[in-house]
Amino acid sequence: MSILSPPQASPHAAAVEAAPETRRQRRRGNLTGLLFAVPALILLGVFHVWASVFNVAMSLTDWSLGGASFVGLRNYLELVGSAEFQNSLVVTLFFVVGTVPVTILLALPIAYALQYRLAKFHLYRVLVFTPYVVPTVASAMVWGVIFGSNQGSLANWILSWFGADPRQWLVDGTGVLNLLLEPLGVRLPGLWAGPSVALCVAMLAQIWHMLGFAVIVLLSGLAGIGEEVREAARMDGAGEFRILRSVVVPLLSPTILFLAVISLIFAVREFNIIYVLTGGGPQGSSETLSMLMVRQFYEDNELGRGATTGTFLALSVAALTLVQFWISRKRVHYE
């Protein structure tokens, strides 16, 4: 069932129509329905619908603390051409690509083992899911301490086992590709060097946060796959890994696709983890779209520009949401 499907005539509607209805009754039903809907109409109307329209309107002005005048598409043209916006698009892409596939790949074997091997051991599910319950501000605080720049932080201590020097993780803007290529004496310029060390710490925190969620979604998909299919594969002499790869994953693909899209949406929207860990720095190397929007608004007081970035954010999430609707409709058809 999708929200996009047209309202279906329920049997109840037919029954009502069959009974001769007086005009007064109908008017009263009309009024009751409206009364039920009024609070939601007002709140959604003001804080979501009007806000979205207002956001686009603001993006067409140079709104700041001093006042606002209409500037047409200037904000959009300037933003698209600006280095900070292009940077934030690439950083968002790094963050998404560096977290979503890793999370799903890690979650698959865990969900598989939980469903088919250890279904009776509920404690594992609880433990795996626990990180997702921890508020992201708190978990980012903890990751910040683990990746502290002091010599005795957990991350630097682990580095010292390998004889490496302590790093200042969260203020390290070096691209990870440059770290790998350092021994060869190669240096890639700017964003070609890949996500910065600081951004990678944020990605790690995001993966830790999302893993349990991914496992739970995959488990619900696995619950729909019958035992016979696996049994048949086993009869044919397939090993456990082969069954996972050639039988379970293909059958699970609608769930995996759905999980991928919903994780993409979460990753694009993530704010807390990056804000607490790096604040967007160093040198903008972890400034995603939403971080850029907040900086333009909160620090630079450029409401018009912030709204413009907000429109881009809204458009990308809306596109992903449409894909998600489309998939969840497909999913129902598979079942």
Binding site: L41, W50, A51, N55, F297, A314
Partner: peptide, 28 residues
């Protein structure tokens, strides 16, 4: 359940609000 005046508006509001992430409405 009901057919009432404003149903279409509510449905449109719900649809529009589901699509737009809350973060993008923070400034307005």
């Amino acid at each position: 359940r009901g057919r009432f005046r404003g149903r279409g508006a509510l449905l449109a509001f719900v649809l529009a609000s589901v699509m737009v992430p809350a973060e993008a409405t923070f400034i307005p």
